[in-house]
């Protein structure tokens, strides 16, 4: 799993670099300073951060064989994750209405690609979490339950870590 994450570093590194290279290139179309809604994004960053906390709690519960709390925290994590994805969808819709489509400019293409990839990762994570809850409920986990929860947890934290970087580099540092 760690190897996969190490490999993912290069994937997101590539996307982030592309964005960094192109973020200033919007040629008269809306640029980062015009469209970003920092308060909204801060809230969703916070949500994702908290989901990491609930994930850790789930892993701990799983280690202690506490099935009920494991399921509870996993569900909470999935909910927070969906909230984040929802926030992102809302953000994309607003951008689109403000005239920033995927093909509008290089800035928009690279922005949507980067955050879109991240969003897909979060969505996959949410699906994994929900599937995990279902499988635990029906007692169909193959292998060691705590380990499975932990693996999903590692993936989830990684997605959060990537967002930490994206949030700073993309949203906060002025272009």
């Amino acid at each position: 799993m760690w190897m996969f994450l190490g490999s993912e570093c290069l994937l997101f590194g590539g996307l982030i670099s592309t964005y960094m290279l192109y973020r200033g290139r919007h040629q008269g179309n809306p640029g980062p300073a015009q469209v970003f809604d920092i308060p909204l994004t801060s809230v969703s960053s916070f949500v994702l951060l908290m989901s990491s906390l609930t994930m850790v709690l789930a892993v701990n519960a799983a280690k202690e064989n506490d099935v009920r709390n494991t399921k509870l925290w996993l569900t909470a994590t999935a909910l927070l994750g969906s909230l984040f994805v929802g926030g992102q969808v809302y953000e994309f819709t607003v951008f689109y209405k403000e005239g920033l489509g995927f093909t509008t400019s290089l800035f928009s293409s690279s922005f949507f690609t980067l955050t879109g990839f991240h969003g897909v990762h979060v969505s996959v994570g949410v699906m994994m979490l929900l599937a995990l809850v279902a499988i635990i409920s029906r007692d169909r986990v193959t292998g060691d339950r705590a380990e499975v929860v932990e693996m999903v947890g590692l993936y989830w934290h990684f997605v959060d870590v990537v967002w930490v970087v994206i949030f700073t580099l993309v949203y906060l540092i002025p272009a």
Binding site: G6, S7, C9, L10, L11, G14, F117
Partner: peptide
């Protein structure tokens, strides 16, 4: 392990 994701990015960009 570390080279494939780079081409993956490049290929995605080209696909898009």
């Amino acid at each position: 392990l570390f080279a494939i994701p780079v081409i993956t990015v490049a290929l995605f960009l080209l696909s898009f």
